[in-house]
Nucleic acid binder design. Sequence first.
DNA 1: ATCATTGCAAAAGATTTGCAAGGTC
DNA 2: GACCTTGCAAATCTTTTGCAATGAT
Lengths: 167, 167
Amino acid sequence: MDQDYKLNDVKVSLTPEERFEEYLQSKGMRNTQQRRNLMEIVYSRHEHFDADTLIDQLPRKGNTGYVSRPTVYRTLAEFVDAGLLRKFELDGRAVYEHDYGYPQHDHLHCTICDELFEFQSEELIALRRNVAQQHRFRVTSHRLIISGICESCSRTPRRKRRKQDLI
Amino acid sequence: MDQDYKLNDVKVSLTPEERFEEYLQSKGMRNTQQRRNLMEIVYSRHEHFDADTLIDQLPRKGNTGYVSRPTVYRTLAEFVDAGLLRKFELDGRAVYEHDYGYPQHDHLHCTICDELFEFQSEELIALRRNVAQQHRFRVTSHRLIISGICESCSRTPRRKRRKQDLI
DNA sequence: ATCATTGCAAAAGATTTGCAAGGTC
DNA sequence: GACCTTGCAAATCTTTTGCAATGAT
């Protein structure tokens, strides 16, 4: 919670909590216990996650800190809207990652262990601008995922960590 | 149905029908009327489509040429497996496009009219190779979607053609 | 005749919604 | 106190599956 919200050349003046607070105020929304609980878990580590992973990290029903499934989905959408999280689709499910205070990047996706690795490329930004210009297209964002097999899985094949396997 | 299955520098010797026939034979599978029906519709035009769009183009239940929803899904998976179609996800639903006989390309996605525009970029291939090399990653494929607003929608804003709107 | 394939009905998985009860400003 | 938010239950949307009947070779 006391992390430094700078990474590489991206600097930000507000913590994610502060920024969310601003967002809520500007929308006439309220900062509830559930939203604070989720904020804390989401920012406790810098990793890609989906709704179910997040729910698994929450206290179970009946315990303090519990947040219901619909509220998790609703709050994730708010985090995205507030610019705190970025959302994308992988194999038909939604994946979230930190956006606020983190530089633009893309992903390598290992189809064996299901891990996501980040990389940055300025050439991609140039490419994107060129393509858009040729098509007279006004770009708002892009998503590049390179799929394959990561170094570790090339050496020591591991089984894919999948939802079904956890039952 | 009598198209020329060459585009740019990609040449193929078999029609999609022939290639699918080969695939079926090699797998001990049978060429049924349903599969032929779907093949014909899928190759009647070169456009991106999803399962529902395809089903909408089929005759309704009770008419000749009808194919049930489960069979449509099963057959699309076979087309992908046979290398005839490529599949990707957009806004949580599966989108298909011609693969066999068509060159590798990526997409611009207009978030207003929901249209997909294709583009090719050799720099992207080089970029992909470089990134993979740096991460000792063995690439099998990639997917780049640039989102924004197309030329036509910048001039004459149109409403998004969405499933819900058709009811 | 054998065995793949189909259509039906139902299930499954992820996400969303209506609404009454409760919480925040 | 006004009204935003929550949790529940149920709905939705897309895709998948079990299975008996049908069809292809």
